[in-house]
Amino acid sequence: MKALIVSDSHSETDILEDLKGRYADEADVLIHCGDSELSDDHPAINGYLVVRGNCDAEDEFPYDVIEGVGGRRIFITHGHRYNVKMTLMNLSYKAEEYGADFVFFGHSHIPGAEKIGETIFLNPGSIAVPRGSDKKTYALIEDNKREVSIRFFDDSHKELPHLSCTFLY
């Protein structure tokens, strides 16, 4: 499985189009973890699997999505309903309830990845309004069933190796 994960674009459409053009043919899924602030019929968000963030007014986007991709169970949410700025505990309970292999979320605008139990949690940061850094970020994840490689990039598509990591299964 290969997935592009982006979040918190806050009405920025050019980067979403750029990412779609760059990765749509090579990724199995394009995921937006909320706060796009776009309507569900906006061309820039077309082609992405999208959840609703706290700044999204669009009722068409669900708060949570459970999706099967490449034989893995993915839980996608924005994170504001799980208090992710303070703890991942609530999110990890929900991930366990869903039997998720991966949890993709946003909201904090801070990129990072960690493995809790057998579940990998990934926040791609914000592609528009970063916090804790001046880098606008997104992530690519590749899973070959033995190891999961997570690579973070800035908005000019330069890899940020200090954020990237690999987890073994």
Score class of each variant (00 low, 15 high):
Asp59Trp: 06
Pro62Thr: 00
Pro62Gln: 00
Asp64Ile: 10
Val65Lys: 13
Ile66Arg: 12
Ile66Lys: 13
Ile66Ala: 14
Glu67Val: 13
Glu67Phe: 07
Val69Gln: 11
Val69Ile: 15
Gly70Asp: 04
Gly70Cys: 09
Gly71Met: 11
Arg72Leu: 08
Ile74Tyr: 10
Ile74Trp: 08
Phe75Thr: 11
Ile76Ser: 05
Ile76Pro: 01
Ile76Met: 09
Ile76Gly: 00
Thr77Ile: 08
His78Glu: 07
Gly79Ala: 13
Gly79Asp: 12
His80Phe: 12
His80Trp: 14
His80Ser: 09
His80Cys: 09
Arg81Ala: 13
Thr87Ser: 15
Leu88Asn: 10
Leu88Gly: 08
Met89Glu: 15
Met89Trp: 12
Asn90Arg: 15
Asn90Phe: 12
Tyr93Trp: 12
Glu96Gly: 12
Glu97Asn: 12
Glu97Lys: 13
Tyr98Pro: 02
Gly99Cys: 10
Ala100Thr: 01
Ala100Ser: 01
Ala100Val: 02
Ala100Cys: 03
Asp101Gln: 06
Phe102His: 02
Val103Gln: 02
Phe104Trp: 04
Phe104Cys: 05
Phe105Gly: 03
Phe105His: 08
Ser108Gly: 07
His109Glu: 07
Ile110Cys: 09
Ile110Asn: 07
Pro111Thr: 00
Pro111Phe: 02
Gly112Ala: 05
Ala113Phe: 00
Ala113Pro: 03
Lys115Phe: 02
Ile116His: 00
Gly117Thr: 03
Glu118Lys: 12
Ile120Lys: 00
Phe121His: 04
Leu122Ala: 06
Asn123Lys: 01
Pro124Cys: 09
Pro124Val: 02
Gly125Arg: 08
Ile127Thr: 08
Ile127Phe: 08
Ala128Phe: 11
Val129Ala: 10
Val129Tyr: 14
Pro130His: 03
Ser133Cys: 02
Ser133Gly: 02
Asp134Asn: 04
Lys136Asn: 06
Lys136Phe: 07
Thr137Tyr: 03
Tyr138Cys: 00
Ala139Thr: 08
Glu142Val: 05
Asp143Thr: 06
Asp143Arg: 01
Asn144Phe: 09
Asn144Thr: 10
Lys145Gly: 12
Lys145Glu: 15
Arg146Asp: 15
Arg146Lys: 15
Arg146Pro: 10
Glu147Gly: 09
Glu147His: 11
Val148Glu: 02
Ile150Lys: 07
Ile150Tyr: 03
